[in-house]
Write a protein that binds this DNA or RNA. Sequence first.
DNA 1: TATTGTTATACTCTATAACTATA
DNA 2: TATAGTTATAGAGTATAACAATA
Lengths: 164, 164
Amino acid sequence: MRDDDKYSRPQVRAAKPADPATPVDLGELESYIGFHLRVAQDTAFRSFARVSGLNGVKPGRFAALMVIAHNPGIGQAALGHTIARDKSSITPLTQELQRTGLIERRTSVGDRRRVELYLTRAGEQQLDRLRRFASEYDARLGAIVGAKKDEFLDILRRIVKEFE
Amino acid sequence: MRDDDKYSRPQVRAAKPADPATPVDLGELESYIGFHLRVAQDTAFRSFARVSGLNGVKPGRFAALMVIAHNPGIGQAALGHTIARDKSSITPLTQELQRTGLIERRTSVGDRRRVELYLTRAGEQQLDRLRRFASEYDARLGAIVGAKKDEFLDILRRIVKEFE
DNA sequence: TATTGTTATACTCTATAACTATA
DNA sequence: TATAGTTATAGAGTATAACAATA
C-alpha cells in the first residue's frame, strides 16, 4: 500500500490526465538557457555513451585516454586538473585503464611520488576505434550547429570561463 | 607501496613536467563540439548546484518542482517522461520532496493507480526562492550568449531531437 | 493485458578527509 | 611543509527487473 498524505487538503486545481501525449507545461524552464544546455548535453551524451560502451570503454574514459595520448607521461594531478576531477577520482580511473590494459603507469624516475601515464599499444588501438565513433557522433552535432560552429564553440568556452 | 607495472618497456617519449601551469594538449578534443558541450554544461551546472544546494534543495530537483508547479496533478510517469528519467528514479525523488514538505502526493480518485503531485505552500515558497537564483544564474548565461539567444536555444533543441 | 507506481538491487561517478611516500 | 597519489567512505543519481494494484 502506498503511503498517501493525510495532510491538510490543498487548494485543488484540475488534475492533468495521465495520457503521455498530453503536452506538459515546462513554465519558465522553457526559456532557461541552463535547462536546455543540460537537456541537450544529457541527451547527446547518453547517445554517445551507448555507442562507446559497445567498445567496452566507459564514456567518461574517452577524454582521459585522449589527454594521455597527447601528453605521454602526464601525471595524475595534471590529468585531473585537465578534465576537472579531483585526484581521488583519478586514481580508480587510471587503475581501471591499467587493469584493462589500455594504459601503463610508471613511477617517475626524477620524482618518485609521480605516476607517469602512457598509452599501451592496445590503448592506442582502442582510442583509434573510439575516435572513429566520436567523429561520426560529432559530425551529427556539426550538421546541426552548421556554419556557426566556431561561434557556438566560442560561447561554450566562455561559459566555462564564466563559471569555473 | 604503489603497484607499478612490470610490463615490457614501452617506446618512451619525453615525460611532461608536473607543473600545473604547463599547458596540456587536448588533441582533437579541442575541436569536438560534444566535448565542449559537456564541459560547459558540467561547469555551469556545478556552479548552479552550489547555489541551489545552499537552499537545501538538490540541484536536480529544481526542474521537477517547476514541472509540478506548472502541471498540478501530474502523474509520476508523465513527470519522468518530461525530465527524461525512468519511473523507478521518480519514486524516491517525489518521496523525498514529500518528506521535506515541498510537494503533496495524492492517489487519483478516478484512477487509483495514479499518484497526483501538487506543490505545497512551502514548496511554492521554496520554488520562488530557487527561481530567483535560477534567474540570476541564467542572466549570466544570457550575457554570454548575447543577442543570439533564440538561435542558441534552437540549436540545443535540435540536438535533443537528433539524439533522443 | 497494459499501465502506474514501488522495491530490491546494483553500478557509475564523484568528492572529502585522512593517510603514505616522497620532495 | 608541501605535493603526488591512495584509500576509506559516503552520497547522489541512475537503471533493470520483478512485483502489486488497478484498469
